[in-house]
Design a protein around this nucleic acid. Structure first.
Length: 510
RNA sequence: GGUCCGUUCGUCUAUCGGUUAGGACACAAGAUUUUCAUUCUUGAAAGACGAGUUCGACUCUCGUACGGACUACCA
């Protein structure tokens, strides 16, 4: 079958998009681009109870930050609009009825309370209640009730649902692009609710199949948690008579907790100090969650890290741009086992990306940080400062600590360094060095270095002795780049002022 | 409990019957160094277990164990 590749990312707006969801979106996107297909964004808001305001906007902004482009869907439009399921509600009832007419589904009038009661009764006797072929004809359904009774109940406004009439003892044979061949006997399955009258909305299963069909989706790439409902979905395609255009399925391995067992959750992030969401999120109730963007990660590094969680190219390449990912991604290299999320590796990826940024690319990350500290400089200056220190950066949030001395003179001096350097003949040496620096015309780091090195050799000072004392004066701490980077950056006047400050305000030891 | 999926260094993974089982993160040691880093070198570190198929199994089959997902009028 050689049809146009059309995939969809179909999140439910019940909260911020989890990184597992981002990865699912990413793999869909890579697959679509790899095959010259379309990426659809569909919002599955068929659960009116769990709807969270702002979640949809969050999802769209997250995908945008990640560089995952949507060709068709919510926020973009397209030939199958609307793409928000709550705006397609009238479509689904028609299809539910079609299934009933064909004998593939039926009305059920049990209330949720009655079902809860049946479940707890079964549990009390050590059994599990399943709504299936064994009980559906004993319960109040259109299978047990007369046609008149069913019509009367509906007319009177009784609440009802439409359930799928799961066949008895039939083996459903399925193929998954990642898992291979899977078979399930329908007798182990239950009669899933497809549509509920209470809110006039379908459940996931119906909406999903109907929309995937209508939107001509060719490949369904989703999380492993959906694998157990794949038989139902296969059967729905058959019931509708859509098997010839049924999409291919690929169930992705889950993202697991860094330690312990189970799938990754927001709590893990809070506990271990890493974000599980791409962007910072404030819930309607005011609860907040940190995000990769705000924590100082670059989108490219974040995506690169996520791409390798459950997929690998089969080569030893680890750093991939989005374009390279698109060119190398394939579903048959997606692994089957769940991938444990590793915060340390996320940091390593980010550091790798930080190291490759040019001064121009660094400036936009640097500027807001400088402004927050009341510093206004040109982009070139901000970028240069960051560029000098980028090898030491892991996250963009490291920038201030790493570069503050370029912009602010030390107000206090690190005790350890004072003890080590501000003693003996060092104060006298620094005074002499001040004189040398004052006499330098060309204050470029190259020239300053030549002059200072010649001087210290002539005078018999050690390089470490001179540099570390100068570092104490200019930086105030045992950090920073080579000293001539600092002298050039802050300029002669500032250099001399900082030296004077140390000499005049800090009493040498001994 | 039931159904389904899975199982190679601590972690992410390569290997598609024959390899000294490779790489990366983290870790350790060393080198470089003007502080802190970076970088480089080296090291330690794995096929859950048991049967079978085969000349030969990490790779195929079965069983066991363990892990996970699902089991809602949620997705």
């Amino acid at each position: 079958m050689n049809r146009e590749v059309r995939v969809r990312f179909a999140p439910s707006p019940t909260g911020p998009l989890h990184i597992g969801g981002v990865r699912t979106a990413l793999y869909n996107y890579l697959f679509a681009r790899r095959h010259g297909g379309k990426m659809i964004l569909r919002i599955e808001d068929t659960d009116s109870q769990r709807f969270v305001p702002g979640a949809e906007e969050y999802i769209i902004e997250s995908l945008k930050w990640c560089g995952i482009e949507i060709d068709e869907g919510v926020g973009v439009g397209g030939p199958h609009a609307p793409y928000r399921q709550s705006e397609r509600r009238e479509i689904y009832l028609k299809y539910a009825k079609q299934l009933i007419d064909a004998g593939w589904a039926y009305y059920a009038f049990d209330t949720p309370e009655e079902l809860d009661k049946l479940r707890s009764e079964a549990e009390a006797t050590g059994k599990t209640f399943a709504y299936n072929f064994k009980v559906r004809e004993q319960l109040p359904t259109s299978l047990s009730l007369s046609k008149e009774e069913v019509e009367a109940r509906i007319a009177r406004g009784d609440q009802w649902v439409v359930r799928f009439k799961m066949p008895e003892n039939e083996v459903v044979k399925m193929d998954d692009l990642i898992r291979g061949h899977v078979e399930v006997n329908t007798s182990t399955l239950d009669d899933k609710v497809l549509y509920k009258s209470a809110d006039a909305l379908p459940t996931y299963h119906l909406a999903n199949i109907v929309d995937d069909h209508l939107m001509e989706v060719s490949h369904v790439i989703r999380g492993e948690e959906w694998l157990p409902s794949l038989p139902l979905h296969y059967l729905l395609y058959r019931a509708f008579g859509w098997t010839d255009t049924q999409p291919e399925f690929a169930h992705l391995p889950l993202l697991l907790k860094p330690t312990g067992s189970g799938k990754l959750s927001k709590r893990d992030g809070d506990k271990m100090g890493f974000p599980v969401f791409p962007l910072f999120w404030t819930s309607p109730t005011g609860e907040t969650s940190r995000g990769y963007r705000e924590d100082g990660y670059l989108a490219e590094a974040f995506i690169n890290m996520l791409s390798l969680l459950g997929w690998n190219p089969g080569t030893e390449q680890e750093i991939f741009s989005m374009e390279e990912l698109i060119n190398t991604f394939s579903l048959d290299r997606v692994s089957k086992a769940g991938a444990r999320f590793q915060p340390d590796k996320a940091k390593w990826f980010n550091a790798q990306y930080m190291h490759t940024l040019s001064d121009e690319q660094l400036a936009p990350y640097m500027q807001p940080i400088l402004k927050a500290h009341g510093i206004e400089v040109a982009d070139e200056v901000a970028g240069k400062a960051a560029g000098i220190m980028k090898e030491r950066m892991t996250l963009t949030t490291d920038m201030w600590d790493l570069t503050s001395f370029f912009f602010v003179a030390p107000t206090e001096y690190e005790e350890k360094l004072v003890k080590k350097q501000w003693k003996g003949d060092n104060p006298a040496m620094l005074k002499a060095l001040r004189g040398v620096l004052e006499g330098i015309e060309d204050f470029s780091k190259e020239n300053t270095e030549v002059v200072v090195r010649a001087w210290l050799e002539r005078e018999g000072y050690g390089l470490g002795q001179v540099m570390n004392t100068l570092r104490l004066a200019l930086v105030g701490a045992g950090k920073g780049p080579g000293m001539f980077d600092v002298t050039e950056f802050i300029g002669k006047a500032e250099c001399l002022a900082r030296i004077d400050n140390l000499i005049n305000n800090v009493t040498p030891l001994e």
